[in-house]
Write a protein that binds this DNA or RNA. Structure first.
Length: 166
DNA sequence: CCCTGATTCGC
DNA sequence: GCGAATCAGG
């Protein structure tokens, strides 16, 4: 049901340039069709130009994100086999471990989230333990050092899809 | 096939 | 008013 609060959040996220499906996940328990339908009824449609080109893609944060050091055993000869797979497995495991150590004072709810906070979700949506990281980098960017590298990347979108179907 | 927003129309 | 189904497009 569209409470005043949810409508306000919808307006904000839509104006922030999030897609209908992304907004559906943020609001929870709703499909992207519902979001689009509501957007039209509110007369909010037609923002900017073509969604793909007009919305400046999120720059991949790079500055402040140490951690995740991938070490590879020194090898001689042709090392092609030893490269990619090892990297990806270690990467995701490291990320999950790191997600569990968000400081209490940094955590925030969806409604407390704003442009200045890390949006990395922790835990299962709907559960008591679900929250957002809420951190930021030392430069004041809306990512924390832990989640900076992985936010808004493909692995993140797969999580979104799982949420939509459940 | 993945995704996007737009539109229609039964509820 | 709501949103699933469907459409057109990238």
């Amino acid at each position: 049901m569209w409470t005043d609060e949810r409508v306000e959040l919808l307006k904000k996220l839509w104006n922030d340039g999030l897609s209908a499906s992304q907004i559906a996940v943020e609001l929870g328990g709703i499909t992207r069709n519902a979001v689009i339908g509501k957007v039209h009824r509110l007369g909010l449609s037609g923002r900017a130009k073509s969604p793909a080109a007009a919305v400046p893609r999120q720059r991949k944060p790079r500055a402040a994100a140490p951690m995740l050091r991938v070490t590879r055993p020194a090898m001689r000869g042709n090392t092609a086999l030893a490269r990619a797979p090892v990297y990806e497995v270690e990467y995701e495991q490291e990320v999950d471990a790191v997600a569990t150590v968000v400081p209490m004072g940094q955590r925030c709810t969806l409604l407390e989230l704003n442009e200045g906070k890390c949006r990395w979700p922790v835990g299962d949506p709907g559960s008591q333990d679900f929250f957002f990281c809420g951190g930021r980098t030392s430069e004041g960017l809306p990512y924390c050092g832990y989640h900076a590298r992985i936010a808004y990347q493909p692995v993140d979108r797969r999580r979104d899809k799982r949420l939509v179907r459940s």
